[in-house]
Amino acid sequence: MSNILVYAEIEDGVVHDVSLQCLAKGREIADASSGKVDCLAVGSGIRAAAEGLGAFGAEAVFVAEDAKLEQYLTSPFKKVVSDFLKTNSYDLILFPATTVGDDLAPAVAEALGVACVLHCDGLAGDALTRLEFDRKVSTTYKAEGCTIASLKDGIAVAGAPDSSRSAQVSDVAVELDAASTKSKVLRRDVAKKTVNLKDAKIIVAGGAGVGTKENFSLIEELADALGAQIGATRAVVDAGWLPADHQIGQTGVTVRPAVYIACGISGAVQHRVGMLDSGKIIAINTDKNAPIFKIAHYKIEGDLKEVLPKLVKLIKA
């Protein structure tokens, strides 16, 4: 029997999609072993979103709310989650593999002295699998006792909510001491979500090789012609050419469009992990040794300023 707790990451009143995927995966394992799946949500102003988790398959939802928990920080969140787990026992605790989940999961594991495996893309019974060595090896981990894991985007499909299901919702007392409130968030620069890259069928993405903000008009024209969404690498976002909601990769979104057109993207691993599973990849780059060419279905060695207008012309023809 597996009793599972899913950490529900909630941002702006919305449960993170990967947390819902963890819940779907947890539900699957619990059903197969006559176990249960509960959720724990930590933050401020999260109650409405947390209550909705019942419709996604949670049996009980625990809500730890406190104004001091408005923004994520390792120590206070670690304190709340580990305090909760000291009085509530679970076999498996699932976190989304996000910058919050991957930060919190090992911190909680340390506080409790239990096993921790991050970035899993497979979970069957007590076996956790993870792709390693540039996705050349799939390693299976087994842990003893209570286990904490973070699961990657794509682990399961977050099903549609079933309004006939509901969860028992209870409040968790939050006790923060001086030791857990030493750090603080000075400021956050977070983009509002204006694009939906996850559901895009076609993505035209630009990297540092686009060269200037003005040159992004070339990418826009191609995207318009194709009815595609525009993606970017971290370098582009850092340069201020596009807002961060366009970012694909390790700290951006993971996408799986049917067609991915990589323009001036060298293909650093941090970007690759976010788009590797695209159906067809077209890469356009002036550097014939760019790592992106190793995963591209179509390799075009050339200047974007020449190639992109040509593609637009051909599509419109």
Partner: peptide, 8 residues
């Protein structure tokens, strides 16, 4: 972080 940066 996803969608931006925070200063801790």
């Amino acid at each position: 972080i996803e969608m931006g940066y925070e200063y801790i």
